[in-house]
Design a protein around this nucleic acid. Structure first.
Lengths: 157, 157
DNA sequence: TGGGTAATCATGGGCGTCAATGGTATTGAC
DNA sequence: GTCAATACCATTGACGCCCATGATTACCCA
């Protein structure tokens, strides 16, 4: 399974350690670096998380100026500069740096939120509020997602 | 057989376990992840269910939206963040999480409703009411579905 | 065609295992 | 020597696995 799914709330202990959900670790287990990449979100009060593979994809995309506008290029520069490699310990816990915790307002607990190819880390209460807003918006204005065809490389006529 | 068909009502035991209908399990048996993906519907008081393949299709489709776009954020939050991987036990049962049961109003029984590529899980009485409404609507305003041609080059099953 | 049998499936409960969590010890850097 | 990072250990509580039972269905054969 290659996706980050679901939301898990884990406690942050006195030392700033927090368990990465077992299913997220399973998703990342195929990668050479045993840990996560984390950087402060520039859009929300949360932390963006992903595996090294996704970082490389971002890098590839950033090099392609057609795909990324100058603004996006700046953003990717921000990302790489801010990204930290957080390896987990034998129990599957990472140590959250001070400034990262401060940016997300995390103190006692952290919510790991699956986003498919990536995930986010929120202060649980903040995420609850953000999610409620999104749900309200979804009820008012039902979002749709054009589904791509099922076959791996087949073109619909 | 590759579709979710028919409706099955199964009991939820004291632990919150419920048997996934054998025919649904057969549909999902070809997948690497032995279980279902479930997320709370944002349109109805029910649970949406599918296999991992469908989630991956959703993920692929979501990639078409720009990374970091608000639309992408909302959809990911609503689907990937809320999706739970519910593996079944050797008897074919899944454990329904508390909040998921609450969202659908499920207490003692659950109705598995086939929807073709996906399925839904309802509180049986709620579904009876919802189905009656749909039938009434269909009588008043006959829905149509433009059939696609019977693609000759596709592999038969 | 009917009875009997076997197989499949849904259901209930006990128990072991592993993930999350908290604490202590050890290592290494300054 | 002090501090911080990390490895090691110990606890507990949820959930995954096993067995046992009941009910329904499918199958076989006289």
């Amino acid at each position: 399974m290659g996706l980050f799914l679901s939301t898990f709330v884990n406690k942050v202990d006195r030392k700033g350690r927090v368990s990465v959900p077992a299913s997220f670790r399973a998703t990342l287990s195929v990668q050479p670096f045993q840990g996560i990449i984390a950087y402060r979100s520039f859009a929300h009060a949360c932390i963006e998380g992903c595996g090294m593979d996704f970082m490389e994809r971002l890098s590839d995309s950033a090099q392609n100026l057609d795909a990324f506008s100058p603004e996006h290029d700046d953003l990717s520069a921000l990302i790489f500069a801010d990204a930290r490699q957080l390896a987990w310990d034998p129990e599957g816990r990472i140590l959250l740096p001070e400034d990262v915790m401060a940016h997300a307002g995390i103190t006692e607990a952290a919510a790991f939120v699956g986003k498919g190819q990536t995930f986010q880390i929120w202060e649980p209460e903040s995420y609850r509020a953000a999610e409620a807003e999104i749900r309200a918006r979804a009820l008012a204005n039902r979002p749709t997602l054009p589904l791509r065809p099922k076959a791996p490389s087949q073109e619909p006529r």
